[in-house]
Each structure stands twice: as structure tokens, then as C-alpha cells.
């Protein structure tokens, strides 16, 4: 299994496929991508993420501190915690979106398949092609049709025509469980869809780039309960081929949907720290830390 994060390749090898490691849909897609760009061989055995001693903030403000967390492949990890505990900041450090805000900084290591995404020479744009993101509020591109929204990541990331674009768009929309609802109106604006559909369109748009990991920042908080349920069902589908990290305010959602949970809370200095992490069943039924227990039983936050 290989990934390429550096702008300048270290060692170019002939197009290997990842079909053996992942599902059929995923493997086929990677094979075609491998044909178009040189790849760097890495000593990676699986596409997990490993966060070591991460601190991040804005200017003199430290939003998260000393977070170490392993994210296992093809699982859903939920990040829970009260407002201001740095959940979103932490998530945005995982694909280097955090640094897009003025004055933002991050220290520590976040390794993807064994390679530090904060290492020297790593291109953040390449990191983001492997680690996709879905935001709190659906944000389809208003100037583009549904089709073009899904195609945007592929089309705008390379010169020239993308082969099999129609198939890729359809596959991404099917993965996001949106195909049947939009197949008759692919060339209409995405902003005419309902909130839930728009969010699934954003998921399809993220999936079309064929990332290995999908970050979701409170993806259902702007949606009604039915649309929320659909997103949760979709996440359980997607986790068969993708690794998902979700930030949520909603503890029931974390309990329903995730395999692992990490609980963040801000300390005296207002920096968010990891209080407890573990398999979701254990953390919710038998929390080790009293603060976790207080939070999940609704005593604060």
C-alpha cells in the first residue's frame, strides 16, 4: 500500500494497486489513479492515522494540547466533548485544514500510513486528497451543478480530461446514497436540494477524490432527525471501505455510530486535552475517568 504526500517524489515505482487491501470499489479506483501519477513507496502496512503529542492553536491561544490518539483503519472514531474542548481544531489538524485560518499553528506528529503529514516537504493539498473532509454546514459549490460538484475534486486536481468521469460521479453519488434522488437532475444546481441531500452531496464530493480517511465535523448538526439518521446509516455503510473520524456534540450519535470514542475536555488553561479514549461500548458503559462519566451522563456540557 502506498501513498504520496510529498511534492517531489523520493523514489518512483511502477503503479502498484491497493486492490488487495480494500474493497473492490476502492481498489479499482486507486488502480486508475496510480496510472496517472508517479507514486512513492512507503513502508506502510495499513492506512491508520497516528497522532502523537499534538498541540495546536491560534496565535498565543492553545486550543488543544498533548493529544495522542490512534485511529484504526475502517473504523469510526467519534470525538466528543463539551463546547470549546478543541474537537474541531483537533479534527482539522488531521488534514491540515487547521492551518488555513490566519495565525493557526500545530506541533506534534500526525502520521498517515507511517508518514508525518507535518513533515518537511509534505504538500497539504496532497494530504487532503487522502484525508477528505465534510463540514458542519453543507457547502456545495453554488455555481456548479450536482454533477460538477462531485466532479470538482477530480477535474480541478489535474490537467486534461479525467477518464470515466461519468462512472466516477455515479459511483460517488451511489456511495453517498444520493444517486437515486438526483440521477434525473444531475445538471441542476446543488443548492436546490434539501439540507440532508446537500450534505450527502458534500459527502459524495469528498468521496469522489477517493480518500482513505474521511473527517466529518458535526455533519448532521444542521439537519433534521430523519436526515441525521440517513447520514448515520451512510456512515455505517462507508466504514466498510473507509476510515471515518467524526466530531459530534450528540452523545447518542457517538454511541450509535462509532466503534471508538475519544473524550476531550478543556483544562484550567482552556486548552482541550484527551481525557479518555477506548472502544465506544466500554467508554459509554464503563468510563474510567469521573469527568467522562459526568459528561456522558449529562451532568455538564
Amino acid at each position: 500500500m502506498t501513498i504520496k504526500l510529498q511534492a517531489a517524489p523520493v523514489r518512483v515505482v511502477s503503479s502498484p494497486t491497493r486492490a488487495g487491501a480494500t474493497t473492490e470499489v476502492h481498489g479499482a479506483a486507486s488502480a486508475s489513479r496510480a496510472d496517472t501519477e508517479p507514486r512513492v513507496e512507503l513502508a506502510a502496512s495499513h492506512l491508520a492515522m497516528n497522532v502523537q503529542d499534538l498541540a495546536a492553536g491560534f496565535g498565543s491561544f492553545r486550543a488543544v494540547d498533548a493529544i495522542s490518539l490512534e485511529i484504526r483503519p475502517r473504523t469510526i472514531t467519534a470525538i466528543i466533548g463539551p463546547s470549546g474542548s478543541g474537537k474541531s481544531t483537533f479534527l482539522r489538524c488531521l488534514n491540515r485544514m487547521h492551518e488555513e485560518v490566519k495565525g493557526a499553528w500545530a506541533r506534534g506528529t500526525v502520521s498517515l500510513a507511517g508518514q508525518d503529514i507535518y513533515g518537511p516537504g509534505v504538500d497539504p493539498a496532497l494530504v487532503r486528497r487522502h484525508v477528505g473532509m465534510v463540514f458542519q454546514k453543507p457547502n456545495p459549490f453554488p455555481t456548479m451543478s450536482i454533477y460538477d460538484n462531485v466532479a470538482a475534486g477530480l477535474r480541478l486536481n489535474q490537467w486534461g480530461r479525467v477518464p470515466d468521469m461519468d462512472e466516477r460521479v455515479e459511483r460517488a453519488l451511489r456511495l453517498a446514497a444520493l444517486w437515486d434522488e438526483v440521477k434525473e437532475k444531475l445538471f441542476q444546481s446543488g443548492t436546490a436540494l434539501s439540507g440532508g441531500q446537500q450534505q450527502r452531496l458534500c459527502i459524495a464530493r469528498a468521496l469522489a477524490v477517493e480518500p482513505e480517511i474521511l473527517l466529518m465535523d458535526e455533519p448532521a448538526s444542521a439537519l433534521d432527525p430523519v436526515a441525521t439518521l440517513r447520514i448515520e446509516e451512510l456512515m455505517r455503510e462507508l466504514v466498510r471501505s473507509y476510515t471515518i473520524v467524526i466530531v459530534t456534540h450528540n452523545m447518542q450519535q457517538a454511541a450509535r455510530v462509532s466503534d471508538y470514542t475519544a473524550f476531550l475536555m478543556m483544562g484550567e488553561d482552556r486548552a482541550g486535552r484527551l481525557i479518555e479514549q477506548g472502544p465506544t461500548d466500554e467508554l459509554f458503559t464503563n468510563p474510567k475517568d469521573s469527568r467522562t462519566e459526568d459528561y456522558i451522563t449529562g451532568r455538564f456540557g
Binding site: N95, A125, L126, R129, M133, F135, A152, L156, R205, A206
Partner: peptide, 9 residues
Amino acid sequence: REAALALGL
């Protein structure tokens, strides 16, 4: 802008 950057643009 975030949506676009998150796609690796």
C-alpha cells in the same frame, strides 16, 4: 474556500 481546499485543490 474550505470545501475546495479540503478536496486537495
